[in-house]
């Protein structure tokens, strides 16, 4: 009788937990779709001390992913918003930590580098309302010049692998 033994509840609870954990956490490791890097993943596999890598840390420290997602789904909304290519698990293999985000208070940034330029991003970070009237994005003018430039480098690197990169990767 399970209601008489705390130990029995304990063990059964662990076993049931492990079943779900195995299916949803362990099994994906054996799916090559989840683990094989794509050309896009290589394009954002930054060297440790590069401006892009440093900019990514600025992105994290300021919590940009609180309001901006980095993934494009094959659904009508993302197609209509013209967010760029649909992303696959392999695009994120080198993302540590991942920056998926869960809320679009602001637009998706997965491929933001392919629709903006460095100058625009720099000015927009300093004073979003000046370039986008009515924007509810906070000002990031409190960042140091280095941090801002690194962040801009990171944002500008967020673009799909070029045809040349893809060809080199597929070789």
């Amino acid at each position: 009788m399970v209601e008489r033994s705390a130990l029995a509840i304990y063990i059964a609870a662990i076993v049931l937990f492990m079943m779900g954990a195995f299916a949803t956490i362990i099994l994906p490791f054996f799916d090559p779709d989840m683990t094989t890097p794509t050309a896009n993943a290589e394009a954002r596999n930054y060297a440790p001390d590069s401006p892009e890598a440093k900019g990514r840390l600025v992105y994290i420290a300021n919590g940009c992913n609180t309001c901006h997602t980095q993934y494009v789904r094959p659904v009508k909304a993302d197609v209509a918003m013209n967010l760029g290519p649909v992303t696959v698990p392999g695009d994120y293999v080198y993302d540590k930590p991942h920056l998926f985000g869960s809320n679009r208070t602001g637009p998706d940034l997965m491929w933001v580098g392919s629709r903006t330029n460095a100058q625009w991003n720099y000015q927009h970070l300093k004073n979003p309302q000046k370039l986008v009237p009515g924007s509810i994005m906070p000002k990031y003018d409190y960042l140091s010049e280095d941090d801002l430039n690194n962040l801009v480098s990171y944002l500008m690197s967020l673009k799909p692998a070029t045809n040349a990169q893809a060809a080199a990767f597929n070789k």
């Binding site: 683990t35 698990p89 994120y92 993302d95 991942h98």
Partner: peptide, 12 residues
């Protein structure tokens, strides 16, 4: 945190 990527998102 050691895994990264879509796998990490799934674990999170």
């Amino acid at each position: 945190a050691l895994v990264g990527g879509a796998m990490q998102a799934n674990m999170n």
